[in-house]
Design a protein around this nucleic acid. Structure first.
Lengths: 175, 175
DNA sequence: GTCAGGGCTGACCGATCGGTCAGCTACGGT
DNA sequence: ACCGTAGCTGACCGATCGGTCAGCCCTGAC
């Protein structure tokens, strides 16, 4: 039942946004009562937090791995690692980019922005130049939006093209 | 007063999202009563529609200009034109990318997706190849997210770097 | 048989939402 | 001096929101 609730809530949040989805909507989709949702979860926020915990932890883990690599060597792992996570959690990515700004009160979600900042740092090759920061931001946005959109492409084609596209964006021709 | 309302509503919608902003919030920010909002506008949706009409019209106009250009020649104008619009309407871009999916009922907003599709078509150089579609989507997402984010960069640096980054993403080295 | 407790529910609550309405105020035309 | 009207407001409305609570049902232990 918990699984069912989380599964349906994930789809609804991704489609209509967090604020755009009511507990009633989730209950109908999961074929249970609204009160049942609140038996399994402390509240609506708790459902979102539990949904976004796996991608948040994976992202912070990636940031940790990248932190030990210096400048140039961090770029390619950052690209492939981020794209891997984005593809794996594409629905969660859609939720995060849609309405994260308000949800930052919750401790689980608060770690996401700083992890993204560290990711941007790695993508920029530890450079503080404005031009490098812009490139990094373009990669993050491009990957996130593309993964969240419903372009009909085979998964491996999508992955390779995202990686190559990101590397070109950063001015790093494909090796 | 209308100007005041639209100005404050734009900022609030961009910051907290459309659903995340109440008429009360706008009224407080605009220093007037909630009833006054609904004297000037037919409803909350009408405020959003009026805010998004200028960028929507500009976008459809750009699509029209690009439609008469064939394949290769459409790419660069598409890049520079889209980036120009995105920079000019950066707050509106943030609103659109955050919660457009639900608002498509309104006729003013319904034209946006098809205009974006035509833009993607031009960015892909009229190619139907999956790889080209992915690249185009990456450019749209990268530009939109970068413009909507608050990276602190001088406007002209931002513009030139966005254009060059987009062209690199598309595999078109800067001329 | 019975009892305890986890899973679940309908009924209900206060808060807040978008929106309506009668009426107040200020002011320009005659 | 009078009036029409544009601008604006407080009070109020029904709907919907997230969340609470007493209690029902079922099953497994003894």
């Amino acid at each position: 039942m918990r699984r069912q609730i989380l599964d349906r809530a994930l789809r609804l949040f991704a489609e209509h946004g967090f604020k755009g989805t009511s507990l009633h909507d989730i209950a109908v989709e999961a074929r249970c009562s609204k009160a049942s949702l609140l038996y399994h979860f402390a509240g609506k926020d708790a459902i979102l937090a539990e949904l976004l915990t796996p991608p948040a932890e994976s992202l912070t883990a990636l940031s940790g791995e990248l932190a030990v690599l210096d400048g140039d060597r961090a770029v390619e792992p950052a690209v492939t690692g981020f794209i891997g996570l984005a593809l794996r959690f594409h629905l969660e990515v859609k939720i995060i980019f849609a309405e994260l700004p308000d949800m930052l009160n919750h401790p689980v979600l608060a770690v996401i922005p700083q992890a993204v900042d560290q990711l941007a740092d790695a993508l920029a090759g530890r450079s503080q130049e404005p031009r490098a920061r812009v490139r990094a931001q373009m990669v993050i946005g491009g990957v996130a939006v593309t993964v969240a959109s419903d372009v009909e492409v085979e998964p491996d084609t999508m992955r390779t093209e995202l990686v190559q596209g990101a590397l070109r964006t950063l001015g790093r021709p494909t090796s």
